[in-house]
């Protein structure tokens, strides 16, 4: 099957659902990269380029939202979550306005551009903002569903999207997506891998490798980081007794943080993380970077073995 980047699916979904005249799309001079250009071509009257001024874009989006618009504001995740962080907090989240932040080029899979453009902190920052909803889809099918869910939800949403083309995990025909509900994509009884974004397909690969070793791993696609699906986490902890989280994000405050918070307060369970270990990224090809930072099926397998050693 042809690979598709989540940013690509995002642009397509905006054009697909963009017939709704209340939808407007803003970009900060990156429409060719964020793929909002697809919407621009379909609905030029409802696309506004704000130029290289992300802070301004977020507050303009807020102003438009007060006038009944469903506003998608797009730029690279590093600028959306960090450059414009305080605008997102004070002008969007505090008044709970209907702004959807389409944050592309998240994580180290940006590749050659290097650390200045590779945000591994964005989910941690966005997750700490009250009223914010965060989705990090794992493939094109899920991205389309996430965009639809974002439109249906009245309030701020942060959509974490990537540059890299990814294999499809889900089938378009019979895909059920519910915001805030993780999807168990493989059952298993020995250990649970909870993954988000591009780590989901790597987790499926890891589960196959574990199977060859006689380990039966459950895999959960946690597309919504906030609000996190507590039920599916606690159920997995009770039934498998060991958790591995996998995310293309800092170990601080993202999926690992969210899952840990649920576990320690409800059902303390051993956990190992596959995540960026509190460091900046660097230039390189995405596949080289995945190896360097341990975002590989092999490392998921290793962490699964480790966590099973301390499982009760």
């Amino acid at each position: 099957m042809a690979k598709v980047a989540t940013r690509e699916a995002y642009g397509k979904a905006l054009a697909e659902f963009g017939a709704d005249p209340n939808i407007v799309v803003l970009d900060a001079d990156l429409s060719k990269s964020t793929k909002t250009e697809t919407f621009l071509k379909a609905y030029p009257d409802r696309f506004f380029n704000i130029g290289i001024a992300e802070a301004n874009m977020m507050a303009i989006a807020a102003g438009m939202a007060t006038c009944g618009k469903t506003v998608f504001a797009s730029t690279f995740a590093i600028f959306a979550a960090l450059r414009a962080c305080e605008q997102v907090r004070n002008s969007i989240c505090y008044p709970k306005l209907n702004v959807k932040i389409g944050a592309t080029h998240a994580g180290i899979s940006v590749g050659e551009d290097g650390a200045s453009h590779q945000t591994v902190e964005d989910m941690a920052i966005m997750r700490s903002l009250p009223n914010m909803t965060i989705m990090c889809p794992c493939d094109g099918v899920e991205t389309r569903a996430a965009v639809k869910a974002a439109i249906d939800l009245k309030g701020p949403v942060y959509l974490r999207l990537g540059r890299l083309a990814l294999p499809e995990v889900h089938q378009a025909d019979n895909f059920n997506f519910e915001l805030g509900k993780g999807i168990q994509i493989k059952d298993g009884s020995d250990v649970t891998i909870i993954a988000t974004g591009l780590m989901v397909y790597k987790s499926l690969e890891a589960a196959e490798m574990l199977k060859a070793q006689g380990i039966d791993a459950r895999v959960i696609d946690m597309h919504t980081i906030k609000p996190i699906d507590q039920d599916i986490i606690i159920k997995a902890a009770k039934e498998t007794g060991a958790i591995v989280t996998a995310e293309e994000h800092s170990i601080v405050g993202g999926l690992t943080g969210a899952v840990s918070e649920v576990l320690v307060q409800n059902y303390p369970t051993p956990l190992k993380a596959v995540a960026i270990n509190d460091t900046f990224g660097k230039s390189g090809k995405p596949d080289e970077l995945f190896v360097e930072y341990g975002l590989t099926p092999e490392n998921i397998v290793k962490q699964a073995q480790e966590v099973m050693k301390i499982k009760k």
Binding site: M58, A59, A62, G63, M64, C67, K69, Q87, N90, S91
Partner: peptide, 24 residues
């Protein structure tokens, strides 16, 4: 009509409101 207090943001929001008015 808009939550403000962090300086510089309100005028951007007013631009957004005016832009929405033009659009509609």
């Amino acid at each position: 009509d808009m939550s403000t207090g962090s300086l510089g943001q309100g005028i951007s929001a007013s631009v957004g409101m005016a832009l929405a008015g033009k659009l509609d």
